[in-house]
Structure formats: C-alpha cells, structure tokens
C-alpha cells in the first residue's frame, strides 16, 4: 500500500463557521506535502483532525489504513505529530519527556533508551538531554517536539510549522532531516515560508477558506506564475474576493 494518508471529504464546522470544507486528498510513501494557506485557512484544523485531536464534523481520514474515527489508537500508532507551537511539559527534562512519549508508545528498557538516544541524535539534542525544557531556547524546544514525533520512526509524519522560530542554520538542518527521511515516509508539513516548499516538498497544496485551491508540485506552480509568492497571493486573495462577491 503506497497511499499512507487518505483524506476523504473531511469537514469541520464550528457553529455556523466551516473551517475545513470537504477536503479530499491522499499522500503516498515518498511524498513530502507542503500544506500552505493564509492564517485561518484551516491548515491546523485539518492537521488536528488527521492527528485524531479533533473529531471531524463529517468525512474521515485513514492513516496506513486505520480510520481516525473508528480506530483512533491504531491510527495514532502510525503517526508522528508535531502540534502547532511544539508544546512540551516545561518542568520535564528532555530525556524525561522523550521517555514519557516512548513509554506511552509501548517501548521499555533498552529499546526505550535506544529510541530516545536515536531521536536526540537526529535532532541534535544530546547537549541538553538533562536540562528542564523550560530553560531551553525556542529552537531547542521546537526540536524536542520534533524528536517526540520521530521517536517511534512512524511511517506518517504530520508536522505543523516545524521550522517556525528556528534560526537559518537550524532551519537548514530540519529540512535536511525531512529530506533524508522522505523516501520511506509520507510527510505533511504546514508552513508560511514559501521558499521551504521549493526546498523540501515534492508537492504543494494551497488551501484558502477551508478548500483546496491548488494541488501541484512546486516546480509546476512556479512555472505558471513568476514566483511561489505571486501564485500564493493570487490564489488565496482571489478566492477571498470571490467569496465576498458571492455574499453580497
């Protein structure tokens, strides 16, 4: 099975407001999908539903064949998720935090130690392993969140703004890491930084007002317009304009 993520008519309504409107797409092994959109377009909501945090209002998604609504625990086992802002428990040490995530994921003893050590190696956290997370800089905190998502070497990775708050060197390292893992995983990353899409993604989806407006490889997008920035502005602003016209 090469389609590791299958999203089927996923919809989320908050009261009368539709945050995610009937989105469908699939992501295959080896793909890095860049999830783009203006703030409030429904990126985080889609990712939260995919990760099983929010139940969808209608529609569903499958991760490695496990339905997020019917088999939430099985779906979560196959998934590494970095929530928006990379939340962590501030009073815990880096090792303590990663061991907690590892234990919940069913690792114990030397297997747990190996997993934690490997995740810290990938995200270059060894230097701060015994520091409480609250004493770390923003870049380190983000990498702790990332290490937690990579810990169990999941086939599917969903990363909400993985490079936000990192300096240029750290951004480069995280992109390298994503590129290295790409061949054997299906990865979805959301970002505001359009150059990042060109740098790591094999495919880009732009959503606006809860709908998919574009689904194409970044190279194709760049050929159409002059730069990704222009394409992004044209698509998301025109979409907003059409909706306003409809309403009036």
């Amino acid at each position: 099975m090469s389609e590791l993520i299958e999203i089927e008519r996923l919809t989320k309504r908050f009261g009368g407001f539709t945050a995610v409107d009937d989105i469908s797409f699939t992501v295959a092994r080896g793909e890095v999908l860049g999830f783009l959109g203006p703030n409030g377009a429904g990126k985080s909501t889609t990712m939260r539903m995919l990760a099983g945090f929010m139940p969808p209002s209608s529609g569903t998604a499958r991760i490695c064949g496990a339905d997020i609504v019917d088999q939430p625990v099985a779906a979560k086992r196959h998934l590494g998720f970095l929530p928006e802002g990379a939340p962590t428990y501030p009073e815990m040490t880096v090792t303590g935090f990663l061991e907690f995530a590892g234990r919940i994921r069913g690792f114990a003893g030397s297997a747990l130690d190996d997993r934690v050590a490997h995740a810290m190696l990938l995200t270059q956290l060894e230097g701060v392993r015994l520091q409480p997370i609250e004493t770390l800089s923003k870049g380190f905190k983000r990498r702790v969140g990332l290490a937690q998502a990579l810990l169990h070497d999941p086939p599917v990775l969903v990363l909400d703004e993985p490079t936000d708050g990192l300096d240029p060197n750290q951004k480069h390292e995280v992109r390298e890491l994503i590129r290295r893992m790409a061949p054997e995983k299906a990865i979805v990353i959301s970002t505001h930084i359009l150059e990042e899409v060109g740098a790591v993604c094999t495919r880009a989806i732009i959503i606006a007002r809860g709908r998919v407006v574009v689904d194409a490889p970044p190279a194709v997008l760049e050929e159409e317009g002059s730069t990704l920035d222009d394409v992004f502005r044209r698509l998301t602003l025109s979409e907003a304009a059409t909706v306003t016209e409809d309403a009036s």
């Binding site: 945090f53 998720f81 929530p83 928006e84 939340p87 962590t88």
Partner: peptide, 11 residues
C-alpha cells in the same frame, strides 16, 4: 500549554 494536543494525539 497546548500539551493537551500532544497528550491526546499519543496512542
């Protein structure tokens, strides 16, 4: 802290 999102997306 937002950790609820982390805790409830663990399996």
């Amino acid at each position: 802290l937002g950790t609820i999102e982390l805790l409830l997306t663990l399996p």
